[in-house]
Simulated assay, not measured.
Amino acid sequence: MPASPATPIRLVLVDDHEMVLHGLDAMLGHFPEEVRIVGQATTAAGALTQVSEHSPDLVLCDVRIGKESGLDLCRQITAQYPGTKVVLLTVYDDEHYLYQALRVGASGYILKRIDGQELVGHLRRAREGETVVDHALAGRVALSAARLSAGEFWSGAHLGLTQRESEVLELLVSGHSNKAVAGRLVVSEDTVKTHVRGLYRKLGVSDRSGAIAVALREGLFH
């Protein structure tokens, strides 16, 4: 049964910087009738403990928690505690992180430059079942969707890959070395390595075989 709109949102804050936690605590403290912070954590393990102990409505966490992944944490929370929603609050103004967040079950993706009133509004809508996206990203996402439906996108765009990263990945799948990719695309080998590192990061893999496996699993190239 959904919570009454009059019931404060029970919230757990997760960020590896205590200064950020203090700032959020102070910001949301101006809205005691709408938000009640029931726990805070600076690590993924600490976050899971807080969720287990307090059964919050929402967890507000960063995409990165030190060396840990807020995306992995989101996946764990939504799998283990289906009654708790996760909203990501981050500095990463990047569609590929947004797409990954939605893929792991996040209920929202918000940039840290947001003010308190907007943040509370987003949290309220997320608790009510909406998927909330920061206004700064929403327009770009809508444009991406329009381009995709018009057939103007490239393979891997939905995973956050740039067009050049997609071209590099296609050549890797075809068995080309970095040097051969550089020759085909008429760029330096260092440039290819930069694109390779970027696509590894976006696909969540650490090597060529992992990238190829994702490409094949997603059916990116035919």
Rank of each mutant, 00 (worst) to 15 (best):
G39V: 08
S188K: 07
V196T: 11
F31H: 13
G66L: 09
H222W: 07
L185A: 04
V14P: 04
P2D: 12
Q40E: 15
H17Y: 15
P8W: 04
S155I: 04
E165I: 03
L73F: 11
A157I: 03
E33I: 08
A180S: 13
A145I: 11
A3H: 14
D207M: 14
I9F: 00
E128A: 14
Y97Q: 08
R127L: 13
L71E: 01
S149D: 12
I212R: 04
D93G: 04
Y81P: 03
E118Y: 04
A211N: 02
L172N: 01
V196I: 14
L172M: 14
H22Y: 15
H158T: 13
V14Y: 02
S177L: 11
A138H: 11
V205P: 00
A146K: 11
S52G: 15
R197K: 14
L169F: 03
G108R: 01
L199I: 07
T42D: 09
R10C: 07
E118A: 12
L161K: 03
R184Q: 07
K67E: 15
L137D: 04
C61H: 08
K179L: 10
A79C: 07
G139V: 09
G160S: 08
D57A: 07
Q76S: 12
L58R: 01
R217K: 11
A47N: 05
L169W: 00
G39I: 10
A6V: 14
Y109L: 10
L148S: 13
S188H: 11
H195Q: 06
W154R: 10
H135I: 14
R64M: 14
S52Q: 15
R147D: 12
K179E: 05
I212T: 06
K67N: 13
L28V: 10
K193Y: 13
A6H: 14
T7P: 07
E118D: 12
V14R: 00
A182N: 02
S149W: 12
R184Y: 03
R140V: 09
L71H: 00
G66W: 07
V186P: 00
H195M: 12
G204C: 09
F31I: 10
I9H: 00
H17D: 11
A180P: 01
P2N: 15
E170N: 09
I77Q: 01
Y97I: 04
I37S: 06
A142I: 15
L203W: 00
L11C: 05
G116D: 05
G66T: 12
T7S: 13
L119C: 07
T49F: 10
P56L: 07
A182L: 02
H135A: 15
T7Y: 08
V181G: 00
E118N: 08
R64A: 09
G105L: 02
A41V: 08
D25N: 15
L48F: 09
P56Y: 07
E53K: 15
G108H: 01
V187M: 10
R10S: 15
T162R: 07
G39H: 06
E68C: 05
H176C: 13
P8E: 15
E95P: 08
T7C: 11
A211I: 02
G129S: 06
G219L: 00
L21I: 12
L119V: 09
L172P: 00
L119E: 04
T7K: 14
V173T: 09
F31E: 09
G183P: 01
M27V: 10
H222R: 13
V91S: 15
H30T: 11
G46T: 05
H176L: 13
L159F: 03
